[in-house]
Design a protein around this nucleic acid. Structure first.
Lengths: 109, 109
DNA sequence: TTACTATATGATTATATACTCACATAATAA
DNA sequence: TTATTATGTGAGTATATAATCATATAGTAA
């Protein structure tokens, strides 16, 4: 691959990962994996101010991770990247393995 | 899962994702997937100051993504999370799909 | 010992991020 | 029309992040 497009790919990957790397946003994504929801319910679920949640949602829409539609007064957000859940399963498997290594280490002390 | 440990899991996931979400760090990980390397060579490869690279490496070690060993004057870094490469393949597949959707949209205009 | 090399770190600066509060906008109902 | 509700956004603040330069540390060789 050309150096230039390699750089662009790194930037794009970083952009998406950045959009995913916040506890609140991960909680939102975890909630949305079971179906689309309005800002109101999302805020209630994750336990944060609506205005704050609204900003996090906008950020993820910008990165292409979420999409939304208006429905009367409400705005409904849903997962846009189809592989999001596979992605998080992979991450969780990594964490599980990390934890195993750590406990193995602890037992060896 | 208990709410408390759920929160901890979100935090841990965010910590790891954050450690991965920078173009330079992604370039480093991409280089290291072919084998361990010293700071010197990593810096040359990714085209950044050694001191800067050193900080990015330390950050990833803290998150458990990398590990290192000393070898004479050099410090050798290598991938610690075995699933890192699978993880990035998944991400790249997502990006590819996003790009396809975009170009489909463009053709429709 | 001194000189050289690889790496790490303190200090500084610039920029980005997250959160809160107040207010603006837009859809709906009375 | 006015009132109510859901959402978004501007302003301000606090904190985090990234990069650079100078300096410190530690291993090696002469």
């Amino acid at each position: 691959m050309a150096k230039r497009s390699q750089k662009l790919l790194y930037d794009k990957q970083a952009e998406i990962l950045k959009a995913l790397s916040h506890p609140l946003r991960i909680a939102i994504l975890d909630y949305l994996k079971d179906g689309e929801q309005c800002v109101c319910d999302i805020a209630k679920k994750v336990g944060s101010e609506r205005s704050n949640v609204s900003r996090h949602l906008a950020l993820m829409v910008n990165a292409g991770v979420l999409s939304y539609k208006k429905q009367g007064l409400k705005v409904i957000y849903k997962l846009q990247m189809p592989c999001t859940s596979k992605f998080f399963s992979c991450l969780q498997a990594c964490i599980k393995q990390q934890a195993k290594e750590t406990s193995k280490l602890l037992r060896a002390i």
